[in-house]
Simulated scan of single mutants.
Amino acid sequence: MTGLSGHHVGLTVTDLDETLAFYRDVLGLEVVAAFGVDGDAFADAVSVDGASARFAHLDADGIRLELVEYDPEAEAAGSPELNRPGTAHVGLAVDDLDAFYEALPDDVPTISEPRTTATGTTILFLRDPEDNLVEILDA
């Protein structure tokens, strides 16, 4: 067996353009690739008849974030909650969480104001336009 190395963290979204704009324009991540995939090999690989997808890859200081919009789209499973098994989130660090929080646009939903946990880490959870959870923490 070969050794594994990290490649990306993926989020499936319903509106790639809106979600990409959020991660690029609001959170300041750099787009490193944008592409589409279709055909029988892709549909077989993802086990979705006739599937095609649009992808955007963003750089989060060494972590590649992959946003993917599928056609056809699956039925929504409901909003993710932090304590539900299987829930995913993207974690991003900033140098000054309070300044980041103050600069957030008013229409970005947050779970709470920045909070310092028992470990001394200050965190903030917000939601992207697709309702995915994004954790912002002090670097």
Rank of each mutant, 00 (worst) to 15 (best):
M1P: 06
M1S: 11
T2Y: 05
L4I: 15
S5P: 01
G6A: 12
H7I: 11
H7S: 12
H8T: 06
H8P: 00
H8M: 02
V9P: 00
G10S: 14
L11K: 01
V13M: 02
V13R: 00
T14H: 11
T14K: 09
D15A: 08
D15F: 10
D17S: 15
E18W: 01
T19C: 12
A21C: 07
F22N: 11
Y23V: 04
D25N: 06
V26S: 04
L27I: 12
L27Q: 02
G28Q: 01
G28I: 07
G28E: 02
L29R: 06
V31G: 04
V31E: 15
A34P: 03
G36C: 04
V37A: 15
D38I: 10
D38E: 15
F42P: 03
A43H: 04
A45L: 09
V48S: 00
V48Q: 10
D49H: 07
G50L: 05
G50C: 01
A53H: 06
A53M: 04
A56K: 04
A56G: 02
H57W: 12
H57T: 08
A60H: 04
A60C: 13
A60V: 14
D61V: 12
G62V: 09
I63H: 01
R64C: 14
L65P: 09
L65Y: 03
L65V: 15
E66V: 02
E66C: 05
L67P: 04
L67C: 07
V68F: 13
E69I: 08
Y70E: 05
A74K: 11
A74F: 10
A76L: 11
A76I: 01
A76N: 08
A77S: 13
S79K: 12
P80W: 13
E81H: 08
E81D: 08
N83M: 12
R84N: 13
R84V: 15
R84A: 14
P85E: 03
A88I: 12
H89L: 10
L92C: 13
A93C: 05
D96V: 05
L97M: 03
D98S: 11
A99S: 14
F100W: 13
Y101G: 03
L104A: 13
P105L: 00
P105G: 00
P105C: 00
I111K: 02
E113D: 15
P114R: 06
T117R: 14
T117Y: 13
T117K: 11
A118R: 09
G120L: 02
G120E: 06
T122M: 01
I123T: 13
F125S: 01
R127K: 10
D128E: 06
P129Q: 05
D131R: 10
V134T: 11
V134D: 07
E135Y: 13
E135V: 15
E135D: 15
L137P: 01
A139Y: 09
A139N: 12
A139W: 06
A139K: 11
